[in-house]
């Protein structure tokens, strides 16, 4: 065994890999199960972007909060939300994270600091300012992370929140997951200047761009930004350029993408492949170690799908609970 050249312990390296692999398998499996027609509604898959959620959230604990997006499964898993409960939620079952009342776009676990995936683009940004404000009042050193895509970056809520975070000096990190497409519309078409760092500068906060397909690049940059926010250094923006392996939602034929784009990205920009190669090359672990994790994750996802399918549906009486009904 040689010296560890990475800024993470071997244990953390393997934990990061397991998280990324869990996200990938979860999404790949949903892709298959959705096609069978067993999953109600629609799902937006995070496959390809695992290094962002994992690289950022390896720096967080339950005291830190995240506000996620419609493409939220990866953020949930990286924040420690139970995979069985998530799968059951996506199947609309009573054992789901939200007892079947939220679905894919509303998975939340406030006890883990996960403030919810969100069906409204850009809606998480104001919410995370509130979470950060709460941390600031309590003095608990908690940091808030809000994710949004290149599409939602054009929402007024995001821009207003950047200003609010800067004006109030809140411990917020704005993470842009720039996958180049707002649903089907390309970034170039939808913006005058497609730099999100420039927007941060306009509000007086620093912004950094990293390759979001490289776990180590995200991990190191996010680490510095989160430490700065935690220490009272104020908000910042992290722009991660990523590739979405699937469409906007399942069932999207993706005809707006270039021919071979997905294949190229899977072949050359897969964060799991590069992570595994680097750790193996450094002599810290072997393919067997990674294969073992892959196997365990595959079993976990198999089990999550099987138990979600077998789980009971919510009782009809659930329709009227968890809300004040005055009619």
């Amino acid at each position: 065994m040689s010296d560890n050249p990475f800024p993470l312990s071997l244990e953390d390296l393997m934990r990061a890999y397991r998280t990324m692999r869990t996200i990938r398998d979860f999404e790949e499996r949903l892709h298959i199960e959705f096609a069978k027609g067993d999953i109600p509604g629609f799902v937006h898959l995070y496959a390809g972007e695992e290094a962002v959620a994992t690289g950022v959230q390896m720096h967080l604990t339950d005291i830190d909060r995240i506000a996620s997006t419609h493409r939220g499964h990866g953020h949930c898993i990286a924040k420690g939300v139970d995979v069985h409960e998530m799968m059951a939620e996506i199947y609309g079952k009573a054992t789901g994270s939200c007892r079947g009342k939220g679905g894919s776009m509303h998975i939340a676990d406030l006890s883990k600091g996960m403030m919810g995936a969100n069906g409204i683009l850009g809606a998480g940004a104001p919410l995370i300012c509130g979470a950060a404000l709460a941390s600031k009042f309590r003095g608990d050193r908690g940091v808030g992370i809000t994710y949004f895509g290149d599409g939602a970056a054009n929402q007024g809520t995001v821009l207003e929140s950047m200003n609010l975070a800067a004006a109030w000096d809140l411990p917020v990190v704005f993470v842009v997951e720039n996958n180049g497409y707002a649903e089907s519309t390309s970034v170039e078409f939808a913006t005058g200047v497609d730099s999100y760092v420039d927007r941060a500068s306009g509000f007086g906060m620093p912004g950094v761009t990293v390759d979001g397909m490289d776990f180590f690049a995200v991990y190191e940059a996010a680490g510095e930004i989160i430490r700065r926010a935690r220490d009272g250094g104020g908000p910042a923006l992290l722009e991660c350029s990523v590739a979405r392996f699937y469409g906007h939602f399942e069932g999207d034929a993706q005809t707006y993408k270039a021919k071979g784009e997905n294949e190229y990205n899977r072949e050359n920009r897969d964060c799991l492949k590069s992570f595994r190669k680097r750790v193996c090359d450094a002599g810290l672990a072997t393919d067997r170690d990674f294969d073992q994790i892959d196997l365990e994750v595959a079993r976990l996802i198999d089990d999550a799908v099987a138990s979600a399918k077998a789980a009971p549906l919510p009782k009809p009486s659930e329709l009227l609970t968890d809300v004040y009904v005055s009619y």
Partner: peptide, 16 residues
């Protein structure tokens, strides 16, 4: 910025 601060109030409420 009503969206930002009303949203922040809601976010803070969800956080205790």
């Amino acid at each position: 910025s009503e969206s930002a601060y009303v949203g922040a109030a809601i976010g803070a409420a969800a956080c205790g």
